[in-house]
Nucleic acid binder design. Structure first.
Lengths: 348, 348
DNA sequence: GCTGGCACTCGTCATTATGGAGTGCCAGCG
DNA sequence: CGCTGGCACTCCATAATGACGAGTGCCAGC
């Protein structure tokens, strides 16, 4: 019927769907008798068994041991998610709640935190949201303030809700008026242009040895450069509701939990995974080992990028057991990403 | 021999000490035979048993069930910690390491984070450090910058490594020069005075209807007041190494873990507990239920306040199982508190 | 007051028995 | 040819059993 599944009958797919749904709901291996009752198809357990044997041969389901029922394999879940899933439309009241919580006055850090809690609260899984990338945000203004002989405070105003400051270590003392001149120059040059552009211009300026650059300008450029390059603050994403994962039988043994939580704290692996989602088109789902990280072997990750001005600036999603309620989770993640984007868009 | 322990023999105490040490080391109930071998005292198991019966009557030890060995009760640990403990002096290289890690250029947030990781790394428990209170820090300078019609950015310079900014929502637009005047006025008035003092002055100014206050001054005062009162950022303490706690058998069941980690995320209870330590004189130890929080029933908390200019500005410590190596942990927490204080003290 | 001895209590661990759920296969039916 | 009922078989879970060892409490004797 389809190039992807040439040798797999409609009926088998139907059964895979029923089996997966049941397993997600109950968490127990599903037997032929149960499936015969619940699949909707009217076949005897024996028939079901034959089909199940086929599905097992195809690697879509497996039995934990002889004479237990079957559970979906990663490939089984994959097929379920890709072609069988009937997503549950999100009820309007939830959307409203999210919108009101996210659409109030927030700086981006608190927006991200709230979004993360919302995700985890609604899905009862772990929520995860990256901080929005700033490269394409425009620089509204720069100010420098002298702090001490060797330190200067740089204030970068990105929007009227978003301000960053960085303390620069400088070689020599600068007077207040020097700094004032520098920021005047920079504001004239760069205000309103986006950060990435600004950074590139600065580098160009520093390389060129233009005759028309006086000492002040040189100072200004150098200072701006170090202000922009100062390490981004450590937290690249925010997680919430990790403890929700302790609810699930299949994750609840000390070894698994330990690995998982250490991975969360380490952040690096999660970050890599999320980075992949920035480029990938739209929503992405990693099931079990698909993620490639051992700590997530028993977990699935559902992510969606969120955008400002049509440009992807971050990723959000949830982490839960492979056996999560995809049909419920997917629309939630999707909606959250859209609302998040909307909340970040400049309005006034 | 002492009003507190009139009816308890030196020998019994000796045994309590040996038993506790052994239990802390091995994590298994300790029997009379073992104790007879290891206590240093030369008594037969039978004698030891008699003494142990006494200790049990006094509520210092108990057996998990008939015919298991004994383990210390909370009161047992209490007596052990208060009067029997021989603390292990801290080796110099560890202290050096801590000093170099903490004494480098840090703002207070990153200082706290590093201290917390250090504590957890060295003790293999969970480390916990509150952010330093700012009330007694002096205000070096204030600046205001206009952001948009209804927003003003306030920058509070506290030291040359410590800057805070707050976005104020204001009723009407202010011009740059108005704001400049306001900050000039405030700097003249308050620069170098401590935050608490400044806050009090501001309130006094706002209440009084002094004739010599012009509109500019009034603006300045009101703005400074809202800048100072803006909610302190959410994180009041920083934890690290929570996952270390998963190493311990006695904490490692899902229910306990869940309670514990949810408590950590909730922060409130931990915060209350730490608040008690600000006032308490010096190092404090909560053993098991002594803390009064159910989530910590199986844990002990060792804390020490850290000071700047002889004033307590924060608390740090570790959380671990009741069965932690107090004699090692106590000097570590103590040293960390001192080094932390030193690192926070203004130097230049 | 200390000690060795003895009976007793429990928890741990491995073994065994039992029941139930589920499978695979086969023969028969439409 | 596809579906079905029947049947033997496998394997997990649970409980029951017994041996073992660690540890206790108590007592009589030194």
């Amino acid at each position: 019927m389809n190039a992807n599944k040439p040798d797999i009958s409609e009926r088998a797919l139907q059964l895979l769907k029923a089996l997966t749904e049941r397993y997600i709901r109950e968490g127990q291996p599903v037997g032929s008798r149960t499936l015969s009752r619940e699949s909707g198809l009217n076949f005897s357990p024996a028939t079901i068994r034959n089909v199940m044997a086929d599905l097992e041969d195809l690697g879509l389901i497996r039995s934990p041991h002889t004479s237990a029922g079957r559970i979906p394999t990663v490939q089984g879940y994959r097929m379920f998610v890709d072609t069988l899933l009937t997503v549950k439309p999100l009820d309007e009241s939830t959307v409203d709640r999210m919108r009101t919580e996210l659409d109030t006055d927030h700086d981006s850090k608190s927006l991200v935190t709230t979004a993360s809690s919302l995700l985890s609260g609604i899905t009862h899984l772990a929520g995860i949201v990256t901080l929005p990338r700033r490269e394409h945000a425009s620089l509204k203004r720069v100010e420098f303030l002298p702090l001490s002989e060797h330190r200067v405070l740089a204030v970068l105003v990105i929007s009227d809700r978003e301000v960053q400051n960085r303390i620069l270590n400088v070689e020599r003392p600068y007077t207040a008026s020097e700094l004032q001149q520098a920021s005047n120059y920079l504001n004239a040059q760069f205000a309103g242009r986006n950060l990435e552009e600004v950074r590139r211009s600065l580098i160009r300026d520093m390389k060129s040895d233009r005759a028309d650059m006086d000492r002040m300008m040189r100072t200004a450029v150098e200072m701006a450069d170090s202000a922009l390059n100062a390490a981004e603050e450590g937290d690249d994403f925010v997680m919430a509701g990790e403890t929700n994962l302790m609810e699930f039988e299949e994750l609840c043994n000390p070894a698994t939990l330990r690995q998982l939580f250490e991975g969360f704290n380490r952040k690096r692996d999660i970050l890599h995974l999320l980075d992949q989602c920035v480029n990938g088109a739209g929503m992405q789902i990693f099931i079990g080992e698909e993620s490639g990280y051992q700590m997530l072997d028993e977990c699935s990750v559902v992510t969606a990028p969120y955008t400002v001005d049509g440009r992807v600036v971050g990723v959000l999603g949830v982490i839960g057991p492979t056996r999560m309620a995809y049909e419920r989770v997917i629309p939630i993640v999707d909606a959250t990403a859209r609302i998040m984007g909307a909340a970040l868009n400049p309005r006034e």
